[in-house]
């Protein structure tokens, strides 16, 4: 089984995770830029983070036979901090990079006017850079936040097919399905969505435009949740083709709109030293 996790924060994970992900079938990931728990206080802090997503993290992933791409943006949690506003001026040059396959995560956290302004500015940037967009939906007041998110996306003029609206649940999936945007589901141990509920949603809404991710980060989360959804799908009677569609072909089609995805499509071999100590310390 070949899995593409379209949303995972690998900078927060250890090499054991990469090893287990590879064994579970994960061959490609997209890491969107988000906050790191500790708020950043200056633009340089973001640039070093972006450089990590373009340099060290893909290098680390490759040691385990996993292809790593990223999405870059000023995230909703930090969009309200004026000290970080200068990140917007730096983003256009980063969006040119080969491994940046989307703008993201953008969207709302507390649904402030400031967040909305930065969300809209980055939708414009995505149009200019010809990149798809990964949109985070807020944890608090999610249904209203998702509705307002879809209004902002519609007003931006971006084609719905170039937008992925993430962290959906039973209450928000319907409106996103109707909008024509892609639908993302983050499968978590406690919160958000679990594998069985995910299967029920796929049974009701089908597999088109559906993406499943672990969104694993520095909090309680599990990078193998994508595989658990695949297994739950098979147990519920979905075919191997259905699983491949949700867990590989859909993310490839969505991020492929960047024109830069260029995944090694045949089974990438892990490097020879995969089983040993692969991240060398010089």
């Amino acid at each position: 089984m070949r899995i593409f996790d379209p949303h995972i924060h690998m900078t927060s994970r250890i090499t054991d995770d990469y090893e287990r992900m590879r064994a579970a079938g994960v061959r490609a990931v997209v890491e969107p830029a988000f906050w790191q728990g500790q708020p950043r206080t200056n633009v340089g802090s973001f640039l070093d983070y972006f450089d990590t997503l373009l340099g060290w993290e893909p290098y680390r992933a490759a040691q385990y036979g996993i292809q790593h791409r990223c999405a870059l943006a000023l995230n909703p949690k930090e969009a309200g901090d004026l000290r970080c506003a200068g990140v917007l001026a730096e983003l256009p040059r980063y969006l040119l990079k080969d491994s940046v396959v989307a703008v993201g995560e953008v969207g709302y956290d507390s649904m402030t006017a400031r967040e909305e302004e930065i969300f809209e500015a980055q939708l414009t940037m995505a149009a200019e850079a010809d990149l798809p967009v990964l949109v985070h939906t807020p944890h608090r007041d999610k249904t209203a936040g998702t509705r307002r998110t879809l209004d902002v996306v519609a007003a931006s003029g971006l084609p719905a097919g170039r937008v992925l609206v993430d962290h959906l649940n039973e209450l928000t999936v319907g409106m996103v399905a109707d909008s024509g945007c892609w639908m993302g589901f983050s499968i978590y141990p406690d919160t958000k969505m679990d594998p069985d509920r995910m299967v029920a949603i796929l049974q009701e809404y089908g597999t088109a435009r559906m993406l499943v991710n672990s969104a694993a980060d520095w909090g309680r989360s599990d990078p193998l949740k994508t595989r658990q959804v695949a297994d739950a799908m098979l147990a519920a009677g979905f075919t191997a083709d259905d699983v491949a569609r949700v867990l590989w072909h859909n993310p490839v089609a969505f991020y492929g709109q960047s024109g830069k995805l260029a995944l090694d499509d045949h089974e990438a071999e892990a490097p020879a030293e995969y089983a040993g100590n692969t991240i060398k310390r010089g």
Binding site: D51, L54, G55, P58, Y59, R93, K97, D98, S99
Partner: peptide, 8 residues
């Protein structure tokens, strides 16, 4: 300085 690993 502004480059990713490939550019460098």
């Amino acid at each position: 300085r502004n480059g990713d690993a490939g550019e460098r």
